[in-house]
Design a protein around this nucleic acid. Sequence first.
DNA 1: GAATAAAATTGTAATCATTACAAATTTTCT
DNA 2: AGAAAATTTGTAATGATTACAATTTTATTC
Lengths: 137, 137
Amino acid sequence: MEKTKYSLATRELKKHKKSLSNPRLKILEYLCYYRDHPTAEQMYVDLHKELPTLSKTTIYNTLHALAELGLVKILNFEENKARYDIITEEHGHFKCQTCGGIFDFQVEQKLIPKGELLGYKIMERNLYFKGICKKCL
Amino acid sequence: MEKTKYSLATRELKKHKKSLSNPRLKILEYLCYYRDHPTAEQMYVDLHKELPTLSKTTIYNTLHALAELGLVKILNFEENKARYDIITEEHGHFKCQTCGGIFDFQVEQKLIPKGELLGYKIMERNLYFKGICKKCL
DNA sequence: GAATAAAATTGTAATCATTACAAATTTTCT
DNA sequence: AGAAAATTTGTAATGATTACAATTTTATTC
């Protein structure tokens, strides 16, 4: 597990008077360890094994709370379900249409658009590619 | 209404042995005229007035068929519902969090990612910004 | 440390966009 | 016109997410 993000997150939670409850810690642990942009359902199925009382609503609540604090990014590029990312630094996502895997990639420069958005306040940038990954080709 | 796209689309439909039925033409007309990235629901409500027999399933069927032919792009960046775009050339979308409007913008160069995606086949690029538009600021 | 207040969690039911599907209608072909 | 194929329609199902009230856990006060 990546220690840095985890301890940053717990510190941030305490700072905002949020308790470090077992569900929250387990969800954070999961996000820090499995960095494969899981869905809420995936987290539920996996975490339910070691924490049988955990409910789906708690997963959603916690993820929203973490997103509120800027500790998690909610990815909305799939047709029906959201994915959750503990890496909040700006980066792109590539989805392989064959294996379904989602890969991160860095972007050259700060995506600056042409004139149209002059005077617009840009608060969030999302870059999402689709195609076939090296392994599947 | 933008004639070019519309006639291109009808030509393309004929080429693929798809009938130019009334629902299809009306949906195309709508997309060409209202280029504000409507949801299926919006199209249903509006088109239902002049074509009362039109069903939602037909809207979905038609939009998928048009997407299949590359005449419509399905935009999946909102949390819960899809939006549909008749402009299929590569461009970015900006969503204003205040008024909810969605604005197109051009991108400087062909979004080329750093090394990570070397050897990956990129088939679709999506760029989506969020913030506050000039008018709302 | 026990009592109380506040926060968090849980399970169930509701919501809402989208899809499945079978019947009815329209279009195309002969 | 008549048969076959394609399209449309309405209703019911699906599935992710949210609403909500009851219960449990955590924090606070004495």
